[in-house]
Amino acid sequence: MLEIKNLHVSVEEDNKAILNGVDLTVNAGEVHAIMGPNGSGKSTLSYVLAGKDGYEVTDGSVTYMGKDLLEMAPDERAAEGVFLAFQYPIEIPGVATMQFLKVALNSQRLARGEGELSTPDFMRLVKSRAETLKVNQDMLKRPVNVGFSGGEKKRAEILQMAVLEPSLCILDETDSGLDIDALRVVAEGVNALRSPDRAMVVITHYQRLLDYIVPDHVHVLSKGRIVKSGGKELAQELEKDGYANYSDEAA
């Protein structure tokens, strides 16, 4: 589904190289965890996949469903099924959550040549997804993320994911700022979306989230490269020994 080859990325502002040759292949149905210390390039990787401005790809390629992902605008990527759950979901004053979800879903459907969803069908869809994620009606009535607690913001991200039903879900530090109960709710929401034709890339600093969202593959990102890959036991190893063993490998 996703094939990243020798990806080199620098920040446009100061030309600083962040990713220095990332290789990663993710197949449909798989859950990959990317772990790494702060500053290893985890968030940059997620932003580059989602299409944020401000990053320059200096080498390498990203192929998604056989297409050149880097050539697509962010909204085209979303319509093709790429979804990034933000580490810091953004507050959008004045834009109602329901309106936002509806415009997003119908924009994607139109781009894919599907018809727009009717308002009653849309309401039913959101309501059923919201119940699973314990997102109450009050949250849906408020402007996007405005006045939400950290945990509410993360649940709202997963709700968006559940409504938009993407093929490739990238979760950037979805566990940060969550207490154990909120973490469980979020993880259940994510697990409910696991399916043979959907892939997930879970980016996290800590192993904790991976107790709930059990990955098929774990990769260690350090200084902009994947320096080690393994099964889920690699995450436990990292939890025990920390990142000290990896910090110098890419130097």
Binding site: A50, G51, D75, A78, I90, I92, P93, A104, A111, L164
Partner: peptide, 25 residues
Amino acid sequence: ENLLFYLRARGIPEKKAKSMLISAF
């Protein structure tokens, strides 16, 4: 730009995303 990217990352085309933000403003 961050608000705009958030809307676009959800599949909302640039022109529509800008209109939504201006309208909200």
